[in-house]
Computed example of a mutant assay.
Amino acid sequence: MEKELLKNLYFDATLSTADFVKKLAKSTPSITKVINRLLDENIIVECGFAESTGGRRPIQFALNPDLDFYILTISADQYFSTFTITNLNQIIISEHRDISLELKCSNSANLLLAEIEKILASTPINRNRLIGIGLSMPGFVNSELGVNESYPISHHLYGIKNTIEKKYGIPTVIENDSRCIALAEKEFGLAKNIENSLIINLNWGVGLGIIINGAVFKGESGFAGEFSHIPLSDNNTLCSCGKRGCLEVEASLNAAIRNTENDIKKNEYSIYSTFVNSNLNKIDALIEASNVGDQIAINNLGKIGYMLGKGISTLIHILNPKQIIVSGRGAELGRILNPQIQIAINEFCIPEIAKTTNIQMSALNKYAQIKGTAAIVVERHINSILTKNHQHKKLINE
């Protein structure tokens, strides 16, 4: 029960005994017993009173802010990775953002390991105080087996989770990037306290996280959510999966970038060509161009918004969700994408079905993957702080 109690405090920050009883479906005496034990060990602390609901104001509890336990996360997309070390209050202690690291390169695994070494070397934190390492990345990630089946068994990224674990002796978790983003929205974002939601990860590609009955749904083989490869495109462009007609070739930020660069080649003027020289990440250049009103960038973003709306219409007809959240880097472009998404929904959706689904842009946007990647470590390994705390006290006493 300690693990579940600690997880809930990580996700909700402060909770009362009554909150724990409701969330964990356990008796008040059993919850109180665990709380007292964690208080005695200084793992949790009292942090004031909750608002009154008519009776005595209940005492709230939180994770001890002085706990020196940390999480290392690697949030990878096709071309860039961000490495962070956060504490249990979700404060970033160290961060290496947007490191150029193309996953398709033959030496990508070695580059990833080298960056882990760099971020560990850049902080005075003792590695023994890391409760775990979380890696999120695109592809057919089998989190139960700890492998990325997008790669052949001989490829270094196939078993990168085990490689990291063996190298550092730290428990490591691997998960698909879109499912991590879905978890972040469920615990910290717009999907919190909503039983059924669909979370679209709009980045270089288009991913999907599915939340059913309050849990992230993975499907029979763990690969549910391959939204990007629904054959809705009439474009003959070859998709990264090797097939044609995939939604991704017209509804991703990569598509908007490709179309913008093609327009520039046709002598159309776009300030994107200036911004791309000062931004390593082309997505940043595209966002910056749209923010200053560049017509070419805005027009091409509108096109992907319309195609995304076409794909969303399919999801609405099949699953009839309460809400659909657009998250990831694309959520930063909501003011441009939203109108075009709605136009497509109006065009392709049966009104009686569409009216019950709320389309929202995530406020977490580019931070969602980082928060979700840390969350998967917490879900698996938060209880390790109990063992580590005992070991630390034993060393002090000796």
Rank of each mutant, 00 (worst) to 15 (best):
G245W: 08
I116M: 11
V249I: 13
N383T: 08
I199K: 09
D12F: 12
L301H: 09
I31Q: 00
I396Q: 06
S27L: 04
A76C: 15
S106D: 13
T123C: 13
N176K: 12
E46G: 09
N300E: 09
I35T: 00
M1I: 11
I153Q: 09
N201V: 03
V326W: 04
N8E: 12
I396P: 00
L15I: 07
F223C: 06
T172C: 06
N383V: 13
N338E: 10
G222S: 10
L286H: 02
I264P: 03
I194T: 07
N142A: 06
N213I: 03
Q342G: 03
N196T: 07
L315C: 10
Q60H: 05
A50D: 10
T86K: 14
N107T: 11
S221N: 14
N87L: 02
N300L: 01
Y79N: 14
L112G: 03
E95S: 15
R258M: 05
L364T: 07
D77V: 08
K218M: 06
G169I: 03
G189Y: 12
L198F: 14
C105F: 13
G55R: 15
E268W: 10
L112C: 08
I230S: 02
I283A: 05
L6C: 06
E347A: 09
I200V: 14
I336Y: 15
I116S: 05
I353V: 12
M361F: 15
I396E: 03
L120H: 03
M307F: 14
S252R: 04
E2T: 12
Y269H: 11
I325A: 07
T373E: 00
D68V: 05
G134I: 02
H381Q: 06
Y151L: 12
L5T: 04
F140T: 00
L113A: 07
N126G: 00
I44C: 02
G242S: 09
I230A: 10
I133Q: 02
S94T: 15
V326R: 02
G189Q: 05
S94L: 09
E117S: 14
N267G: 01
G169L: 05
K266C: 05
P152W: 07
I325L: 10
L232E: 05
E175R: 08
P58H: 03
S106M: 13
Q323N: 10
H96L: 13
N259T: 03
S178G: 06
I312H: 00
R244I: 13
T373H: 04
M307N: 15
I287V: 15
A114V: 07
I43V: 12
L198A: 04
I325Y: 11
L39S: 05
N267A: 10
I164E: 01
E51H: 11
A25D: 12
I164S: 01
G209P: 01
N236Y: 08
N267V: 08
C246M: 01
A255Q: 02
G225R: 08
N107C: 01
V141T: 06
E115W: 04
I296N: 00
T73Y: 01
I324A: 04
N279Y: 15
